[in-house]
Amino acid sequence: MSGRRKTAVLTEKTMEALIRLCGVSAVVFVFGIFFFVFREGYDLLPRLDYREFFTSIEWYPTSQNRVRYGILALLAGTFSVTVLAMLLAVPFGLGAAIYVSEFCPPKRRETLKVIIELLAAIPSVVWGFIGLTVMNPLIIYLFRVPIGLNVLNGGIILALMSVPIIVSIAEDALKAVPDTYREAALALGATRWQTVYRVLLPAARNGLLAAVLLGVGRAIGETMAVLMATGHAVHIPTSVFDSVRTLTATVAAEMGEAPVHSDHYKVLFVIGILLFTLTFLVNLIADLTVRGIRNK
């Protein structure tokens, strides 16, 4: 009898320890990743010419006579693709969330949610493949431009990738608005659309903002798809039909060829630190706004 109780207590304790370990490991991993990225790049940090780094468009990491690490064009690439992706994904994502949560009959809602989740599960290399083999010829054909691997292509692909995140978080935010608000507005004779934009959107504001920010985070951090879809030209784009190269694509493409512990290798890690900081900030802001709703 008491032997059995002892085992029970022991199992309980072990389970508790295991679960705690899982929780703690998440923190350990995040710090671990940051530590390793930082360690690989840090001894370049004091030697780096930051003016050149941030303001020059000249990215010649392997030049024979003078290497130049200017990431302005890469920043512009990331920025242009992300902005275009958000211009497409935010209206579509929020619109879809509003439709799914407020207008759609319950049965269709379930189907749509499954499909949207499916969309979120497509691996990014498959998206890149679509960019390469479907979007590329389509853009060439539709817009009569010489090359279809450009900002437009990358932006559309990234938009498709961020929409599911935006939809599912925005839909949660709308669903969290108490039903009594809808009841009240409808009973006063408001139409469903009036209820949405006068009551629900303001009430769910923070959650919707968080949805958008997490979508942005996804777009900034994405590598494989943009690597394949944006055409790989280090260049500040002047139109959506220009090819660009993003920060992430640069790291992915050059990491393999840069000799370990060379300056080139280290500067790629510095870019990693920059990206880490960017996405961390975006996620932090998103998280704080989500917390803002919960506390209300």
Binding site: P178, E183, A184, L186, A187, L188, G189, V199
Partner: peptide, 21 residues
């Protein structure tokens, strides 16, 4: 019209539900 109907027939609910305004 549903809207006119709801204007002339108001409703008060079990739990007070003022809008978040």
């Amino acid at each position: 019209s549903l809207i006119e109907l709801r204007k002339s027939v108001g409703m008060v609910f079990q739990r007070p539900n003022p809008l978040p305004l």
